[in-house]
Amino acid sequence: QVALSRTQVCGILREELFQGDAFHQSDTHIFIIMGASGDLAKKKIYPTIWWLFRDGLLPENTFIVGYARSRLTVADIRKQSEPFFKATPEEKLKLEDFFARNSYVAGQYDDAASYQRLNSHMNALHLGSQANRLFYLALPPTVYEAVTKNIHESCMSQIGWNRIIVEKPFGRDLQSSDRLSNHISSLFREDQIYRIDHYLGKEMVQNLMVLRFANRIFGPIWNRDNIACVILTFKEPFGTEGRGGYFDEFGIIRDVMQNHLLQMLCLVAMEKPASTNSDDVRDEKVKVLKCISEVQANNVVLGQYVGNPDGEGEATKGYLDDPTVPRGSTTATFAAVVLYVENERWDGVPFILRCGKALNERKAEVRLQFHDVAGDIFHQQCKRNELVIRVQPNEAVYTKMMTKKPGMFFNPEESELDLTYGNRYKNVKLPDAYERLILDVFCGSQMHFVRSDELREAWRIFTPLLHQIELEKPKPIPYIYGSRGPTEADELMKRVGFQYEGTYKWVNPHKL
């Protein structure tokens, strides 16, 4: 086992960053958080920038500027975001240094004079007029057009580079997404736009490419001749908990499936790229999406959770019991969808996408189930092999396979070949997804960000279904809070070829 401390991990990262040409360590950078008073800024962006600063992973002359409508001070920003920093008493001095680099400007999102004030403020910072500028839009999409237009007109660096990070949702359907994309691309070049999907920053999602293309053993079996089906799962054990009003506007397909799960599907299904260059990788992902037809209604199961009468606390409440959810809402909190990649490698292999709230566990994984062994000599005792990439929690890679049961006879039983990170790298604290992705933006690497043509294809696949749901308002199937979801989803999976045995229990190697 390799035991690495946080300091050692960050030392390795620093070495990698400083050796590259793309990370300008000594240049002045300004990180501007648009929507600095909001939840995302408070819980994710400010803490992430602090962790990067604490670990010495930001360029040395980096300033952080918050911008929002609320009249706040840096002290206010500190008060609301610091509880999420997880700072230790030993880091007190470092924390003071961090907040000394912070400033805040209040202004409207659609007022040109406010942006001119913001620009004057940035120019007044040390070497601010020639600094590289990175704008993070932690804002609702309704203000994107006004904000990007004003940034472009008043706040661009004339000497350094300018980059803009856009948070999902990128529209509600193909038409609104196209409108937003066309607007942003009329102001910024594609190499300046970073559409963030934080799932692409997760260690195991990034590991998929290495697993596939750096190991000879997987190449020959990664196709329709050997793989019976692919299941991509995202499960949350909690409901909307008072935030249903926002969720109800989008629903589970827009929230998770059309982005996170579809991105994971691309990494499983794509061909080997010409290189690890950002556009070479994204070219292959677009090719996969172009091979997927629009979702067919007979390959869809929609569910909505109801309270568990035997549960406790939140578990007793259904989705419609959330006071922020519109009365009688038919918005799905669970969806199972089957897609097919219609190309030579994957023809006929079902890709089953499942996601839901208020389920029995927290889990995100990719599961490849292989065909049955031909010419069975073990009297149907063999179960199908599976390769599982567990994204969260407890990152893991393992192969479910058959071995001989101890004893006199040739009785096979299920076991696993474990390729888990935790076994080799004991207690290594890896940077989280937002840390990686923000560092990628500083480096100018777009590999783990969504390109406009990729986004367009993703919406093309799901828009007809979303429009049909909005028009017909089908009643989702009720499922109990804390269950596996509607049984109809299991029946759909069985119908397209997935075999669920229920006889195997994964042993978490992190707890051995």
Results as ranks from 00 to 15, higher is better:
F442T: 13
N423Y: 10
Y340M: 14
L267E: 01
V288P: 03
D376I: 06
T487N: 10
Q369A: 06
I352L: 08
Y319W: 01
M264I: 11
S293F: 06
E271L: 06
R495G: 12
G348E: 05
V300R: 07
K426D: 10
G307E: 09
K473N: 11
T487K: 13
I477E: 14
I352N: 00
Y319K: 00
V301C: 10
F370L: 10
E488F: 07
Y305S: 03
P474L: 12
H448I: 01
E361A: 08
D283K: 04
V373H: 06
N423I: 11
K426C: 10
I480D: 13
A269L: 06
L265V: 09
F410Q: 15
D255N: 00
W506Q: 04
P406V: 08
K287I: 06
K285V: 03
V341M: 09
A364C: 13
G375A: 11
V295R: 11
Q381W: 07
E365F: 00
L387M: 05
K290V: 03
N394M: 09
N298Y: 10
V391D: 04
L353N: 05
K357P: 03
V295C: 13
E413R: 08
G444M: 06
C266N: 08
G375C: 13
L353F: 08
G356H: 05
N411V: 10
F378E: 04
I377Y: 11
I352E: 00
W506I: 02
L437M: 06
V325T: 10
V450H: 03
N308C: 12
K400V: 06
V268F: 07
A274N: 14
P431N: 12
L465C: 09
L265T: 07
E416D: 14
L430V: 09
P474V: 13
M257L: 11
Y421P: 01
K285I: 04
I292M: 12
N259P: 01
G311I: 09
H448D: 08
T399C: 14
L265R: 02
L320D: 05
Y340L: 10
R354A: 01
V337A: 12
M401F: 11
V366P: 04
L466A: 06
V300C: 14
M402Q: 13
P478D: 11
R367G: 02
F442Y: 08
D418Q: 05
V338A: 14
T503I: 09
A458K: 02
I377S: 09
R254H: 03
P412N: 13
W506Y: 11
C382A: 15
R282W: 03
V388G: 02
Y425I: 06
A297I: 13
I438P: 01
G422Y: 14
L368F: 06
D283P: 01
D279A: 09
M264A: 07
E435T: 10
E414F: 11
H379E: 13
L265C: 09
R327D: 14
L417T: 07
W346T: 01
Q369Y: 01
G497P: 00
G311A: 10
E361S: 07
P474Y: 09
F351T: 02
R436C: 05
P350T: 01
F442Q: 08
G356F: 02
Q392D: 00
T331C: 09
D310Y: 14
I253W: 01
V301N: 06
A315F: 14
C291M: 12
D432V: 06
E294Q: 13
V300Y: 12
V507E: 14
Y421H: 04
L417E: 07
K475S: 14
N277K: 13
K285A: 00
P476S: 07
S445W: 11
D372S: 10
L353A: 05
G313W: 09
L262A: 10
R436G: 07
Q258E: 08
P323Y: 11
D310I: 09
F498K: 08
K426L: 10
E488P: 10
I480Q: 15
E314D: 14
Q263K: 04
V288E: 01
E470K: 07
A336R: 01
Q392Y: 06
P486I: 06
L302E: 06
P406F: 04
V428I: 10
D310S: 13
Y305L: 02
I438C: 07
Y425V: 06
V301R: 08
V341H: 02
R254D: 06
Y434C: 00
Y479T: 02
Q369F: 01
R367Y: 04
E386R: 03
P412A: 10
E470H: 11
K317G: 13
L261F: 05
T316M: 13
K272I: 07
V366S: 00
V397S: 02
T399Q: 07
C382Y: 14
P406C: 14
P464G: 12
K383N: 13
E344Q: 11
G422T: 15
G422F: 10
Y340C: 08
E413C: 10
E284P: 05
W346Y: 03
R327Q: 13
L466R: 00
T403N: 13
Y479H: 00
A335R: 04
E361Q: 08
D376R: 06
E416H: 06
L289A: 08
E314V: 11
E472M: 12
A489V: 09
R456D: 05
I352A: 01
Y305F: 11
M264V: 08
R495A: 12
L261H: 05
V295E: 06
N423W: 09
D490S: 07
R424P: 04
D279M: 12
K405F: 14
K494C: 14
V496N: 14
F409D: 11
D322I: 05
G407K: 04
N299W: 08
S293R: 15
K429Q: 12
R384V: 05
Y305P: 00
L471E: 15
P350F: 03
D440S: 05
V349W: 02
R424T: 07
Y398K: 01
L262M: 12
C443Q: 12
G307W: 01
T463C: 06
G407F: 02
D440E: 08
F334R: 04
M264T: 07
G328V: 09
Y481C: 10
G303W: 05
G482A: 08
R345H: 12
V441D: 04
L265I: 08
K400T: 04
T403G: 09
Q263A: 00
E386Y: 00
L339G: 06
N394H: 09
Y340D: 05
R390W: 03
K363Y: 00
R484Y: 03
T316A: 13
D310T: 12
V300W: 11
F498L: 11
Q381Y: 07
A297G: 15
Y500A: 06
V300H: 12
K317I: 11
T487D: 14
S293Y: 11
R254L: 05
T324V: 07
P323Q: 14
